[in-house]
């Protein structure tokens, strides 16, 4: 086990955790988005509530969701560890940080991550917490009517605005994180890396954009 401990305590090992948890969360985003897009279906929330019922009661999903929280936690803890270590690596800074040779988001993943974390807390408190522990009326099928809850929530303009803005930060975080994860895993090849980078950029734009569209459309009572 020595090798494992030494690997995981090395800078590269820590980055490995960041990359793997990051990629898992990226996958989670896809699943989460595909479910949430059902909010935009013009069926009074039927399919969405069915989906929510399934997600809330399927034992496998339950395990995965615990894993999901665990990975978020791991992502945060290792981000903190790395940030502390990186801060220590440069005790005295520069006077003139005028010339920048890298992208802003790549240098500020910690700040972006923190903003996303704050959003996550608000988001969980709004929906997940309420669904699990609060009172939610039932719909015609006898499922918890999360759809109505969501609709109500997104009738508040400021919450919609918060969601939209947060998605911009998520996009920025993903734009670096996606391809960075592959770099950290050492998955680099002359032929495939350009594709990974392209997909990363596309993902970082499309996924947060679709997420952001949901509250906006619900606010304006639009649906498909």
């Amino acid at each position: 086990m020595n090798w494992f401990i030494s690997m995981m305590s090395s800078t590269i090992g820590r980055k490995l955790i960041m990359a793997l948890t990051g990629l898992f969360l990226i996958l989670f985003l896809v699943v989460h988005l595909s479910g949430n897009l059902q909010l935009l279906k013009n069926d009074g929330g039927e399919s969405f509530n069915t989906y929510a019922q399934f997600m809330g009661h399927n034992p496998l999903i339950k395990v995965v969701s615990i894993g999901n929280f665990f990975f978020i936690l791991l992502h945060i803890v290792y981000a903190l560890l790395l940030t502390l270590q990186n801060r220590k690596a440069r005790p005295v800074g520069y006077l003139s940080e005028t010339t920048k040779t890298s992208n802003w988001n790549s240098r500020n993943m910690g700040i972006l991550g923190t903003i996303i974390l704050i959003f996550l807390v608000v988001h969980l408190q709004n929906f997940w917490f309420k669904m699990k522990f609060g009172y939610v009326p039932l719909d015609d099928m006898g499922y918890k009517d999360i759809y109505m809850e969501t609709k109500e929530a997104f009738s508040q303009w400021w919450l919609v605005a918060l969601y939209v803005v947060s998605m911009v930060f998520l996009a920025s975080h993903l734009a670096h994180g996606f391809q960075s994860a592959f770099q950290t895993l050492g998955l680099n090849h002359k032929k495939y890396t350009p594709a990974i980078q392209f997909i990363g950029k596309a993902f970082a734009i499309i996924v947060p954009l679709l997420f952001a569209i949901i509250p906006v459309m619900m606010f304006f009572n639009l649906s498909f």
């Binding site: 800078t11 590269i12 990186n86 690596a89 040779t101 592959f182 770099q183 950290t184 050492g186």
Partner: peptide
Amino acid sequence: FGACTNTGACSAVCPKEISLTNIARLNR
């Protein structure tokens, strides 16, 4: 030394233009 967060600043200032591919290879 700190950890690599893949910002690419190193390669951008490297007088010998050592590429980030090397870092991926090191990770691997």
